[in-house]
Amino acid sequence: MPSQERLAKGPVAVFECMQQIPCNPCADACPRGAITVQEINDCPSLDEELCNGCGVCMTHCPGLSIFVVDYTYGKDVALVKIPYEFSPLPKVQEIVDALNRQGQCVGTAEVIRVQTSPNKTNIIWLSIPQELAMEVRSFRLRKGNIVNPNDVIICRCEDITLGEIREQIAQGKHTLEEIKRACRSGMGPCQGRTCAPLIVNEIAKATGKPVSEIPLPKFRPSTSPVKMASLLGGDKT
């Protein structure tokens, strides 16, 4: 944990890594050489004078256990950068519920910036009251801000949403075969590999039947797409 003096100077990384496991991507990631992992099973140690709080280490930590805290961000507010791998991402200026290490809501935070990373460890910058800066380590989107589950795509080949599936179930179609014919779910190149289990869950929820009692659809060839040209020529017998 950085010292009070260091925290007062500006942004600095906060390691909440307690597990002694063989892991050191943070040390390699730091452009200033501020992080050391002595033995591979040791927890990292930070040279807080070398650290400038850039946050590169955050996106490399597979355990999402590094944060950046900046007490100099505002008069009463601090900036806390949090690694975040859920979707959807919040929007800038959105107000979210600030959560402590136990996942309890301890206040509200404003989203200052959303840094997306190609490796999916995105960094969310939160502005929170200073007294919560060493407490808040996660956040929750507020109900109204969350994407309507009915808009979630269930069949990715044919762009069928959960809402459309639920509508078919509500109309009395309680098998994958009927739902497929009504809205094309499972008719795409993957032949239902992704959507079938999801739709079965929805049918089970709606009908109260166990998943094991929802009949599987007939699987039709081919197992994977076949190029027409590859069928040409060859032996006829």
Partner: peptide, 29 residues
């Protein structure tokens, strides 16, 4: 479904509509 159908269908359709050779077949019944 039969595999013979796939072959026969592909041969005949490509004869009269040649660009279809480039398409992927995703299902037969």
């Amino acid at each position: 479904s039969s595999w013979q159908f796939l072959r026969d269908m592909a041969e005949r359709i490509v004869e009269i509509l040649p660009p279809l050779a480039r398409l992927n077949i995703i299902r037969q019944w």
